[in-house]
Computed example of a mutant assay.
Amino acid sequence: MAHVSVEERRPQLVSAAIALMKREGAHAASTRAVAAELGVAQATVHYVFGSKEEMYRAVIMKLTDDLVAYVQAVDVPEFPDFEQCLAVLVNRLWQSLLDDPYAHLLLTELSVLALRSPTLKALVEDHRMVVDHVTGSLIRTTAGRAGVELLNDPILVAQFFLAGFDGMTQQHLAAPHPEAERWRVESLISATTVLAIGTPLQRSVPSVREADPLT
């Protein structure tokens, strides 16, 4: 069998780990299971990563990079309306959840696990910082395209938006409800617009019966 370098094997193992964890959960990603997923010896996983924690680190970085690249790929339109511009970005991010919910679930699982690990906790903090700054940059760009001035720090606005989006992600994963979710997304866009440029927007609110699939 031809020798495969670490540089070539590492992304293969990361992809195998992600596929396994999406299917069975983060807890299932033992080095033995990841090796079996790719069809290599367990020793290969240990050689490439050194530890299970380092493998988790590589997976978190890959998921983060993919999500950031997905959102950054959108072309911010030059609408004369901040809310319309922002809606394009938010809908792109929401679509990433609809397209691959298990990627978002896995990132959530790994983030919680990492908070219990002193070495991985710093990685989670770095992950949040990267996402905050990328989102803040997009908000700044959106304001520029719309020709308006931001009233608050775009990073703070981004953190507010991301906190709301994280909550909506959990709601979708636990109990998806398309009609209620559309209202939540539009309301989050409105609230973020108010914080960003101070323009209040009116949204019709669905009744509790419409929003709650259990009623």
Rank of each mutant, 00 (worst) to 15 (best):
D212N: 15
I155E: 08
D66Q: 10
I139N: 01
G50A: 10
S5P: 03
V112T: 10
L113C: 07
S51E: 10
L86R: 04
L151E: 11
T193D: 04
M55F: 03
L115M: 14
P213V: 12
E37W: 03
V45F: 03
H127D: 06
E7D: 13
T141I: 10
S190P: 01
H104P: 02
R140G: 07
V14F: 06
T141F: 03
R128P: 00
A16H: 00
P200E: 07
L188Q: 03
G167F: 13
V124K: 06
A196M: 07
F165N: 02
I60P: 00
P200W: 06
T193Q: 06
G167C: 11
V134T: 09
H3P: 00
E7M: 05
A2C: 01
A41D: 13
A174N: 12
V48L: 06
E78K: 11
D166M: 09
L188R: 01
E24W: 04
R57E: 13
Q84C: 06
V71M: 10
L214H: 14
S204P: 01
D132E: 09
A33R: 06
R203T: 03
L195M: 13
T192I: 08
F79T: 08
P80D: 11
A35F: 02
V130C: 02
V88E: 11
T108I: 11
E186Q: 15
L188P: 01
A191R: 09
D126V: 09
Q159W: 03
A36S: 09
L162W: 05
I60G: 02
Q159T: 12
E186N: 15
P11M: 08
L120M: 10
L13V: 06
V130Y: 00
V194K: 07
G144L: 05
Q95Y: 05
P118H: 09
L123S: 10
P176N: 12
D81F: 06
E179L: 14
L115A: 12
L110Q: 03
L115V: 05
L162S: 02
A180N: 10
Q84L: 15
R128F: 13
A43H: 09
S204M: 11
D212F: 11
P77K: 05
L20F: 08
V185Q: 13
V112S: 08
C85W: 00
T108K: 08
P206Q: 05
